[in-house]
Nucleic acid binder design. Structure first.
Lengths: 224, 224
DNA sequence: GATAGTTTCATACAAGTGTTTGAAATGCAA
DNA sequence: TTGCATTTCAAACACTTGTATGAAACTATC
């Protein structure tokens, strides 16, 4: 159908504009102008502005979540149903960090859009994020299997802090660069992932690689 | 002057409305209705809507920053110019967490406002936050004095992660409660502060209390 | 008690918003 | 071609937004 052309023109124009200028500054008229389609096309194809935003965000975050679960599954299978705690954290924060940071984030509209969605918090996106709890529960379950000795609450705190470090790094990327005067290398995504993983593991197990130490074996020691 | 009455009526009505309903949903007309003043009063007393928001946020965050620096100063004086790293982190995250979390956060409009400002990110507030770097540099300097051996970048990462955990806990308070089904006690502010401090210290020094361990001495051991 | 300065007020303004409408154009099957 | 459904289009709609205006009310000083 020819309609798909209009639909996807709107989607990609909207993603680019939102990524560059934020949700507050971009109107439907901006979007349709950039996509070279009629103003009414947005409501015809998506129903409303909010549903357009929701569709953009859902498709991107579904992709990330899928990637996360794939990594988690692989780690659990490699460990015979019980993944190492560092592998779990890596599956949790790796996809998000790789998607939003690094050299690709300049070029990739998708990455810039997700960063924007993480900084500004508009209602349609907030609604979707609230449903993310079910997804996180799978990681909590994996952690429980990996560290059966730890108290439930501690596992949740560990999960929470890992996400905190990842998301805050994405959100405050510019400020950290400015604060550290460039000393913190925000382009070394893999290094950042390992930093976050190392701290997360250490928080839970009380051992592992400390910040700044080059992890020789690519993985922190597990406590159990 | 009688004008102060109108001014502060606007300020407190605005703070309450923003705290309850967010910046996106509250118009000047809502504010003046709640404050029982004329619509033009906002522009007369503050110049514009953005300057009103800025004034609200500035006064609250100045208070927090002052508190932080007081704690930092006290810690440095107690240690003869060189504060323990855990005391530094405690001065950094304690005031913010105490201000935004805990039982008072239900009652305190100021707390709810600051949480809102941390979730939504409107232009006037973003502008102010960007100037916060100078304030953070003072903590970076204190960390440098406390741990002269560590690489600069590691100190910044440690500072960054500490803020990450604090702010993410404030932002995602509800989600963490929901995810953990109430197991994570978000009302135990002091416990949360110690958790964040413990992880932050451990990340930098590779030692200390791990998550969930009751810190017997109220402070994690310092590495140096 | 007149004057000057400040503060309040009702009202209007100008611009921008997402959404709707109904007709025109297009694509496709019979 | 005819007929029917889908898609596009220009235009208007209905409403909200922050801000500006100029007169009125108030306050304090001389």
């Amino acid at each position: 159908m020819a309609s798909d052309q209009t639909r996807s023109a709107i989607l990609s124009a909207a993603e680019r504009l939102y990524a560059d200028r934020g949700f507050g500054d971009v109107t439907l008229r901006d979007i349709v102008a950039a996509a070279n389609v009629n103003l009414a096309a947005v409501n015809y194809h998506f129903g409303s502005k909010d549903e357009l935003i929701a569709e953009l965000f859902v498709s991107r975050s579904l992709a990330t979540n899928r990637e996360r679960l794939n990594e988690l599954k692989a780690a659990e299978e490699a460990g015979g149903g019980r993944a190492d705690i560092d592998a779990i954290f890596r599956a949790l924060v790796g996809p998000t960090l790789r998607g939003c940071l690094g050299p690709s984030s300049e070029g990739s509209t998708a990455a810039r859009f997700m960063i924007r969605a993480s900084i500004e918090s508009v209602p349609p996106i907030r609604r979707i994020k609230n449903r993310e709890v079910d997804h996180l529960r799978k990681f909590a379950a994996a952690m429980r299997r990996s560290l059966p000795g730890r108290a439930e609450a501690d596992l949740y705190w560990g999960l929470h802090f890992a996400l905190a470090m990842a998301h805050h790094t994405i959100r405050e990327r510019e400020r950290l660069t400015k604060l550290s005067e460039g000393l913190c290398d925000l382009d070394d995504v893999q290094g950042i992932v390992e930093r976050v993983v190392a701290v997360s593991v250490m928080a839970l197990t009380g051992s592992g690689t400390r910040i700044g130490e080059k992890p020789g074996s690519q993985r922190a020691r597990q406590g159990s």
